[in-house]
Design a protein around this nucleic acid. Structure first.
Lengths: 132, 132
DNA sequence: TTAGGTGCAAAACCTTTGCCATCCC
DNA sequence: GGGATGGCAAAGGTTTTGCACCTAA
C-alpha cells in the first residue's frame, strides 16, 4: 500500500501550486524550504510513485532534464526555444485523432502528447537574455 | 566554418540509413565498425553540429536517453509504452494548427511535435516480455 | 597556415539504488 | 509489528569538456 507522508504530500502540493512544469531539482529546492532535510532521492522516488498513481505526469518531448506537472485534463504544451520555459496551451485536445490513427495503423493508442515550439512573447521582444 | 570529415559524414549516413531513432550509443557502436577509433565525444559533438545545421533532430522520448533521427519532413511518432520502441506515423502534419494557435495566443510558433502513446502490435499480443 | 575536428580520459550531470533508521497503518 | 518510506551517500549511466594532436580547406 502507498502511505501518506509529509514528503509525498509536500511534493504533490508544490506541483499543484505551480504552472511552471518544474524539474526535479526545482521541486527539491522548494521542498527543502519546508522540510530542510529532505533528500533528492526522496523527491525522485515520490515523483515516480505519484506517476504510478496517476497524480503526476512527466514531460519528455524535449530536453535532457525531465519536467513534471500535477496531472490534470490532458492538454498541449508550448516550449520556448530560447528561454526553455514550458507553457500550457488551451487548444482543445483532438481525441478523435487517436481513434483515427489507431484504426488505420493497428496500434493501440491511449493518448498523445503535443508540444508547440517557437518563441514566447517575452523572447520575441528581447534581443539578448539568459536561458533558464 | 564546418568541415567535411569522415566521422561526421559517417554519423549522418548511419542516421539516414535507419528508421529506428537510435541512441547516441547505438550510433557510436555502428560508427565504430567503420572507424574503430572513433570516440563517443566525437559522436556527441557531431550530433550537436548536425542538429545546429538542421540535418538531424533529437527526440527525448523517455526521459534519460536522447534519440536521434536524420531530419526529414516533419512527421509524428508513436512510442510503445511497453517496449519503448519508437515508430513513425504517417498521419499528415496539421500545419494549420500552428497558425491557429499562434494567432490566438501571440506566441510565435515554428512547428509542433506530436507523439502518440500506447501499445505496438507486437506488445498487444504478448503477455510478458522485455523492454528494449 | 590555421581554425575546426578528433581521441582520450576525466568531469559534470541527472537519476537510481543500497543500507539502515524511521514512520505510518 | 512490519512493510513502506526517508535520508544519506555512493553508484550508474549519459553527455560534456579540457587538452594535445591532427587535418581539411
Amino acid at each position: 500500500m502507498t502511505r501518506h507522508t509529509k514528503q509525498r504530500e509536500t511534493i504533490l502540493r508544490i506541483l499543484r501550486s505551480t504552472r511552471s512544469h518544474p524539474t526535479a531539482d526545482w521541486i527539491y529546492e522548494e521542498a527543502k524550504k519546508e522540510i530542510p532535510h529532505i533528500s533528492k532521492g526522496t523527491v525522485y522516488r515520490n515523483l515516480r510513485v505519484l506517476q504510478e498513481n496517476g497524480q503526476v505526469s512527466e514531460l519528455n518531448l524535449d530536453g535532457t532534464v525531465s519536467r513534471f506537472e500535477a496531472k490534470r485534463q490532458n492538454h498541449y504544451h508550448f516550449r520556448c526555444e530560447r528561454c526553455g520555459r514550458v507553457f500550457d496551451v488551451d487548444e482543445p485536445v483532438d481525441t478523435k485523432l487517436d481513434r483515427k490513427v489507431a484504426k488505420r495503423t493497428g496500434l493501440r493508442i491511449s493518448c498523445h502528447q503535443l508540444e508547440f515550439r517557437g518563441l514566447c512573447q517575452d523572447c520575441q521582444h528581447e534581443q539578448t537574455g539568459r536561458r533558464e
